[in-house]
Design a protein around this nucleic acid. Sequence first.
DNA 1: TATCTAATTGTAATTCAGTCTCAATTGCAA
DNA 2: TTGCAATTGAGACTGAATTACAATTAGATA
Lengths: 144, 144
Amino acid sequence: MNDGEIKYKNYLHSKGQKFTPERQIILKEVLALAHHFDVDELYERLRRKGHRVSRATIYRTLPSLVENKIIKEAVRCQDNITKYEYIFGHDHHDHIVCIKCGKIYEFKNEQIEKLQEITCKGYKFKPVEHRLGIRGYCQKCRRG
Amino acid sequence: MNDGEIKYKNYLHSKGQKFTPERQIILKEVLALAHHFDVDELYERLRRKGHRVSRATIYRTLPSLVENKIIKEAVRCQDNITKYEYIFGHDHHDHIVCIKCGKIYEFKNEQIEKLQEITCKGYKFKPVEHRLGIRGYCQKCRRG
DNA sequence: TATCTAATTGTAATTCAGTCTCAATTGCAA
DNA sequence: TTGCAATTGAGACTGAATTACAATTAGATA
């Protein structure tokens, strides 16, 4: 078992819940995904690999992975699908999202991060996390 | 007609669209709302005032008000309803939210805004709106 | 002012992500 | 090994949001 699996198993145990094969399969795949994903993508990937985990189980498992901070809900995208994003062991980054086609750019700007810290200091506020999402039109869609 | 209505009418005109009574009614109500709202709240308010605008029309109008920067989609809330927030005539601001006591500081940092614009330019992306929320502990709560 | 036409509207049907029910199954503690 | 609460899959259900379509209308033009 890798770090993520141990973390999740302990988390489930602490809540009197079980580390089932289905949950392990889902977690494994989520940890293998480098980027954003939604329930359907995850379902199809598992299916292609021969794992028969139902959509219902995926829908039930992802929120608990969110609570365990292994993934988080990503920015709202164009269609109203909930997208998730791997965070366990990954660096923080912000998002630029196209309203029209749903394309997502990830970026990180150290100056912005720094300015946020300075702002927080001004309020004597201790930041834990932040989320910055810019929405608009990508190069292709701004023409349409 | 007030500023908002003129702005919207011009916007519609520029796209070859019409400033219909329904759109005017919706806009008027939106401008009268000081805070967050969703489609159903808006529909009920209009209904109580005797306006018979269909939900479909509201669903069709709000996105164009978003594009015209009169409102914006608010943060995703718990239930998956799309919430909107009045912005026209209000200054844009970002949020610092205390995880513990819920206190909200509003702030705006021109340098951060500028850096976002530069970042978008780098991606040839046309920003429509952005959302920055910092979560953590306020001065009082960080001690606790 | 009357005419014309593309845009718009309301209704109702449809879509579809997400949730829920329930019977069957299973992890795991004792 | 047993007992049972937690879990699963299948499929029914929910409800926000979208769409088709026929009727209506805003607004440009003459």
